[in-house]
Nucleic acid binder design. Structure first.
Lengths: 153, 153
DNA sequence: CCGATAAACTTTAATGAGTCAAGTTTACGA
DNA sequence: TCGTAAACTTGACTCATTAAAGTTTATCGG
């Protein structure tokens, strides 16, 4: 394949990573579809690439995670989700029912409770804030046909 | 068995729950051993009860969870942990390596960032704050024999 | 106190997300 | 264009948790 020069390809090269079809597709697709699960990403890029294994998606996401090109959110009881937005200390709103996620910029602004009162000898490197609730779709659906998956709005 | 009258038995009855040996043992043991995994609880009470299935531990914890007698913490990538302290809005400090958990009373006091700037149509009922880091034991161990489990101090 | 019965417990099987490992293909520097 | 390490494919496997079917037991009404 001839040397690609898209912004995404450049971001990869800037970090010393190889530019592959899988990586390019995942990053491009994720830019348009934030908070996607591995399943979502897999389905999404399969249409563009023809075929790709789920393991490859795991590998790509892991590599991009370590290179700080994507960020991971792991809500308790739901599969992990991924987004391209990184390093800006925003938080997440999670639907208990369907796992759907929305971004929230914390009201308190600059890293509110980042410093615990007592660190118990830990070396703390992150304060994670997660809001839990029920999304609109699930709330209205609860009155009709419960238990659907509204995570892709 | 003759009707038990311990505080724990009373707490169970107050919620209309049956008082069983398993429930009594789990709650009693958990009071002395906060932040325990299902595994820990199982091991802990087996000594007192002679024998109990792990499934029973899951069932007991689930029932007590719904009755608000225990609280659950599910750190990403680690098995769930349980504690008796409930409803006082304290947060947790988690060791990335061994999963060990410590309590922290948030520095900002009264539910700091409980209200996100925009609720995206969600009905928000909880703001969860989790601090991540490496505990002292894991930090010192990292220089000698890495990858041990220091979660039970 | 005794028997009925629904709730708890036991055992075994299944699920679902994620990891591991061996072999094949591919990007890319020499 | 070739060699090689990195990336991908396939398939097996782990681990925490849930599910389902059958047995035991706490509690209530007599």
């Amino acid at each position: 394949m001839s040397r690609e020069v898209t912004p995404i390809a450049n971001q990869l090269r800037a970090r010393g990573m190889r530019v592959t079809a899988a990586r390019h597709a995942v990053l491009e697709w994720l830019a348009d579809n934030p908070h996607a699960t591995v399943e979502h990403v897999h389905d999404g890029i399969r249409q563009r690439l023809g075929s790709i294994s789920k393991q490859a998606v795991y590998d790509v996401l892991k590599a991009c995670l370590e290179a700080d090109l994507v960020q991971q959110i792991k809500p308790a009881g739901h599969p992990a989700r991924f987004e391209r937005r990184t390093g800006d200390n925003h938080h997440h709103l999670v639907c208990r029912r369907c796992g759907r996620i929305e971004d929230v910029d914390c009201a308190v602004g600059a890293r509110p409770c980042l410093n615990p009162d007592h660190d118990h000898g830990f070396e703390v490197d992150e304060a994670e804030v997660m809001y839990w609730g029920i999304c609109g779709a699930c709330r209205t659906a609860a009155t009709n046909a419960p238990e659907d998956d509204h995570s892709r709005q």
